[in-house]
Design a protein around this nucleic acid. Structure first.
Lengths: 235, 235
DNA sequence: ATAATTTCCTTGTATATACAAGATGAGTTG
DNA sequence: CAACTCATCTTGTATATACAAGGAAATTAT
């Protein structure tokens, strides 16, 4: 069987939506109607509807029927990729410089972000990620020692901190914020910026089941780095 | 039945992953093993595995088995929401000021971005979105007249351009880039910025089946606006 | 010993069937 | 007229069964 039947039904439905034939909130054929239209079993028709529902393209309501989801509910998403992979994908040379690896006493904002007590010890690393030997991103990371006690012993030339942490403490959640900032003088030096320029800053906090694992600040010059996102309608 | 059997199996698998019992790339029980462990039919066990696979938590390979997906493959996503909804969700007052509604002759970069011929006519609008009467975001939008010929006749106080366009020409695809920029003087005036400050700029291009519908530039002051994202492990 | 075949376990597709439960409208009853 | 019941449509859960197809390892043939 070249194209599975359930996939043919999915295509049929998607074509009707994309052509504008079926508008937002319109009703789509029920499982039984598709069953007789396509001469398949109800379970096969159901599979097509269920998968499109999981993909956010349809909504279903027991007793009422299945409907075209409103586009509004389809959020536009941006992807934050691993910087090392991204550089390698561009066929550029990736390298990194480790500036700081230390254990420090947590001041209030850092302690709060990590969910530990003020003045307790936390690990801090500062790494510059380079593309073709030019600084592309500074990663300043604070790590909860309880959840990654060997953090300072790692060699982050071969494995990024994010990769190490997700192996050590299984990650269950991550939160990000993105903002535009003006770098301070220290950051300008790290990034080799002679003229001040706006930077994109991503704050990432990661959780495991045992608590907050780490808190990272990723800063890139606006002229060299941007985030990309892509949303397609069909699966 | 309070909790469906397939959901119980999903929970069982998720707990084992979150506790660290099953690590990345570890093999999880096969459909047949779950069938006998939980005393369910193969189709029920299969449903649990399939749904977790669709959610990106497991990967499956015919003949080999089912495995815990690597966290790396789980992309971190940022959501770009409708600005009006976002302001209202904060219980603030939303308003907008329409600065420009015009038909212009497309210079090269705009014509290319819209996929029309250079010097052909395109629509342009500039709208300032306010939170509590303070400018929060400037939306400059170029629209392909072939796909939304009544664009200039709309009243965008009641309906945002994005909402209007997605009703008029069913959207099938969207692409975004996010970057940090320094606003030019005109933009500073629109945003009421006395001191220059970095801004977050989102470029959004939207497609319908008939071609590129519009090209928008959304600029917000870095001090007032940020993008947020959230990634949870469990469904 | 190496190569080809077979066997077995895995996931993938598809059907027929059964019952549960939500929504709706028609018809009945008060 | 209002309220209730019921039939019927919808989706939701669950099972048993069948065959297809990929992958790996054991077996057999060369």
């Amino acid at each position: 069987m070249s194209v599975p039947k359930f996939a043919q039904i999915k295509e049929f439905i998607l074509e009707n939506i994309q052509s504008g034939e079926w508008q937002e909130n319109d009703r789509v054929p029920s499982e039984n109607e598709l069953t007789s239209q396509f001469q398949v079993s109800r379970m096969t028709a159901r599979r097509a509807l269920s998968e499109l529902t999981d993909a956010g393209i349809l909504t279903r309501s027991q007793g009422q029927g299945t409907f075209v989801a409103s586009f509004k509910s389809q959020s536009s998403l941006l992807e934050i990729k691993n910087i090392a992979d991204e550089v390698k994908a561009r066929n550029s040379n990736y390298s990194c410089t480790i500036l700081v690896m230390e254990s420090i006493s947590a001041i209030a904002p850092i302690a709060i972000a990590l969910g530990v007590e003020v003045d307790s010890h936390v690990y801090r690393s500062v790494i510059v990620h380079n593309e073709n030997e030019q600084p592309l991103q500074v990663e300043e990371r604070f790590v909860n020692p309880a959840l990654a006690k060997d953090y300072l012993q790692q060699d982050f030339h071969s494995l990024t901190p994010h990769e190490y942490l997700s192996q050590t403490a299984p990650l269950t959640e991550a939160r990000h914020t993105v903002e535009a900032i003006m770098p301070n003088q220290e950051m300008c030096e790290w990034l080799n910026l002679y003229n001040e320029e706006p930077c994109l800053q991503v704050i990432r906090r990661t959780w495991s089941t045992q608590g907050i694992v780490s808190f990272a600040r990723l800063v890139s010059p606006g002229s060299k780095y941007r985030l990309g996102g892509h949303l397609t309608f069909k699966k």
